[in-house]
Amino acid sequence: MKTYPANYPIVQVRGLKKLFPVGGGRKLHAIDGVDFDLQPGRTLALVGESGSGKSTVARCIVRLLEPTDGDVVVHGNSVRPLNPVRMATMYRTLQMVFQDPNASLNPRMTVRKVLEEPLKLHLSMTQDERNARLSELVTLVGLGEEHLARYPHELSGGQRQRIGIARAISINPEVVLLDEPTASLDVSVRGQILDLLKRIQRELNLAYLFISHDLQVVRHVADEVAVMYLGQIVERGPTAEIFDNPRHPYTRALMSAAPVARYGVKRERLRLAGEISTPVDPPPACRLSGRCPIEQPVCSQQRMPLEPINETHSVACPFSDRVAEAVAPPVPAAKAG
């Protein structure tokens, strides 16, 4: 377990942008200026619906995608000028767990080969040391040595994701990006994987970026939550505050739509008008304008930056005081988009 100074950010993401050309000179703004830090032992959850750009953020950090602008700084050094070979060394620090454990494991490699590969590429170990490390790893993720000889298709979904996690932590990284790690798992397995991730984080003092659309899960694992909408972070703060007192209209709409498996819980939904607008060449306006129940004229005239409302909580909405009013009488269903 590595130790760090207090509040030390291992990864700093600054002004990250990713634009995809969509033809005709137009650009799809997948990520449009995103900033955050990742600290050891802490989990930042990136929450959003499809099209919010949350997975693109992770891919830009590890440079599976090249960011258009902005910077990713790891231990004070920018990763952007690194060539592929130097970037490969950066993956000793920066690792990722993918959403679909079926697709992220090479179907032709046994578990042993999957886990051996990073060890061989990054560490000079003897075969005995590697074997010892392999059995340590499978034990750490709750599997046995008998699983080493298996192929991915011989494992259950949960077991595959455990291997995905073991691969990510095999070379002792400091930061792990988790891209929807439980989205393709059954609920009963979901809890076990979350449990495992938390335990590993404690034992190895890892920094997590947890990308998810599952609010239940986020509430369970995150220390801090950043809510993304159309490529921007619209609200960020401690988990409890985001869930109990969401201040951005979008956050509130999202929270109020999440189903709860309890009998007799009636949601008071905040509804947004229409459908998500296009991320292609968005106008310089609040991204929610046109859908927002508390919209003001100024909202469609300028971008709304993320402003702190207290020490830890920031919102990209100057009218966040009024958001509670918007919920009160539910809008008639006929108007729901």
Binding site: Q192, D195, R199, Q216, H220
Partner: peptide, 14 residues
């Protein structure tokens, strides 16, 4: 019961 607990993530609070 297990399914309900898993859905609410109650059983697994660490």
């Amino acid at each position: 019961r297990k399914l309900l607990a898993a859905s609410l993530l109650t059983e697994y609070s660490a």
